[in-house]
Amino acid sequence: MAKENKKVIALMNELIEMEISGVMRYLHYALMIKGPNRIPIVKWFHEQAMEGYQHASTIGEKITSLGGHPSLKVTPVPETKTHKVLDILKESLEFEEKALEKYKEVLGHVGDDIALEELLREMIRLETEHCDEVRKMLDTNY
């Protein structure tokens, strides 16, 4: 395995750990939402958990195709004990921005692997759109 492949695999393992953490995070958020707008917000958080699972699966498949072994670790999810919707959305945005930066970091190491580059660019697009959506949800000046 080439040195650069080892670096990419290590970084992608950080991504899979973050994405699995996102599954746990969004499931927790969905369970903790209360109030009159609960149903659509819970649905949205469940969708985010499923997206995290899909991203982790995709990244894991790529890790194995590069000759690596997907990590079994999960990035710790802090329990802030703050379960108000706007606070949860702020936490979500911070988490998603960190994941976006990690995807961009991996992109800087792909070399000539066009398939991996395209995969990462698609993930970056999806994460950017997610961050944009959360920012819109946080804009309460409507």
Rank of each mutant, 00 (worst) to 15 (best):
L31E: 13
N37K: 12
S71R: 03
L66W: 00
M50K: 15
G67N: 02
D87S: 15
R121E: 07
H55I: 05
V77P: 05
H130S: 08
G108P: 04
T140R: 11
P70R: 02
K6V: 01
G52M: 01
L72M: 12
W44F: 14
E129G: 09
M24V: 13
I41S: 06
I20M: 11
E47N: 13
I33D: 04
S92Y: 08
K104S: 04
K84L: 15
L120R: 01
L15V: 04
H109F: 05
V77G: 05
T58M: 11
E133F: 09
E133W: 10
A115E: 14
I88L: 15
R38G: 01
E101N: 11
D132M: 08
S65F: 05
E118R: 12
K7C: 00
L89M: 15
G52L: 04
H28Y: 13
K43N: 13
K90E: 15
G60A: 05
I59W: 05
L66P: 03
H83G: 09
E91V: 08
Y29Q: 15
K104R: 13
L15K: 03
L119C: 00
V85N: 14
K43H: 12
V85M: 15
H46W: 10
L27A: 11
E129P: 02
I9P: 01
E4L: 09
R135K: 13
L138P: 00
V77Q: 08
R135V: 01
I20T: 11
V74G: 03
T80H: 14
K102S: 10
K6F: 05
E117S: 07
E122N: 10
M123L: 14
A56T: 04
L31W: 09
K62Y: 09
M32G: 07
Q48D: 12
M12W: 01
